[in-house]
């Protein structure tokens, strides 16, 4: 199953870099979200009495970054199965003699890779627009981003496959995904990232365990459900 999953992921990444359809949209969207936040917090930043720019921005970093990751990432997740369905290639994958959960794992791998690129771009955009310096805490912050993004992609890919056959799939995708990730991925990731940026990653053990546990639960759900999700 894993060789086929890797083959699917390689194919997705190759076609994405050739066409740059989604990665470009996701990066531009993340830029727009960060710009919108920058203008929205203009007044707050002007009124702040903090000693340094980084200190005054610190409470904003994590929530803004994770909202950006989620909304920009949702663009990519939504189209991950929709493109295959609309171009008729999903049936071609389903005809392959393999456990069909390989399709799910392949999509998880490629989505994870592509959304990580968007995450990195968002971190850079934030640094530029808010003049924030990550120095010193970048490694633990990226560790949390890796774990949180993985959980987000694992459940997002499953929801994308569930909604692909629905008529209003864009709406259904968002309605199903946001409540699911809110308490299991988004809030723990925001807290853990904030603690990482404050240099207190060891205080984020509960959040990190929660993220790890939900990633495992969602992978198991994806593996068990996927065979039934796509069949008519």
């Amino acid at each position: 199953m894993m060789p086929q999953a890797i083959t699917i992921a390689q194919k997705d990444i190759k076609t994405e870099f050739r066409t740059r359809e989604m990665i470009f949209s996701m990066v531009v969207f993340s830029l727009l979200i960060i710009m919108a936040f920058r203008f929205a917090f203009e007044f707050y930043l002007e009124e702040s009495t903090a000693a340094t720019v980084s200190e005054e921005v610190l409470p904003l970093v994590s929530p803004i970054l994770w909202v950006t990751f989620c909304f920009a990432g949702m663009l990519g997740l939504l189209t991950s199965f929709a493109k295959e369905k609309d171009r008729g290639t999903l049936d071609g994958l389903m005809l392959v003699p393999m456990d069909r959960s390989a399709i799910y794992f392949g999509k998880v791998l490629s989505n994870f890779f592509l959304i990580l690129i968007v995450d990195i771009a968002s971190v850079v955009f934030f640094s530029l627009f808010f003049a924030f310096d990550y120095t010193g805490n970048a490694v633990p912050m990226f560790a949390v981003i890796l774990l949180g993004t993985f959980g987000f992609v694992v459940i997002g890919t499953l929801i994308s496959s569930i909604s692909v056959n629905a008529r209003g799939r864009e709406v259904l995708f968002a309605i199903l995904l946001i409540p699911l990730i809110l308490f299991t991925i988004l809030l723990p990731s925001i807290t853990a990232t904030s603690l990482a940026l404050e240099g207190r990653i060891m205080d984020a053990q509960v959040e990190l365990r929660l993220l790890g546990a939900f990633a495992v639960i969602y992978i198991a759900l994806g593996y068990l459900m996927f065979n039934f999700v796509l069949e008519e």
């Binding site: 060789p3 086929q4 083959t7 194919k11 076609t15 066409t19 049936d91 071609g92 994958l93 392959v96």
Partner: peptide
């Protein structure tokens, strides 16, 4: 069931690998 963005060679190679 072919990918428009890939060449014929890449498509056939892809399915060949998928079929093991």
């Amino acid at each position: 069931f072919l990918y428009d963005d890939l060449t014929l060679y890449e498509n056939l190679k892809f399915y060949s690998r998928m079929y093991g």
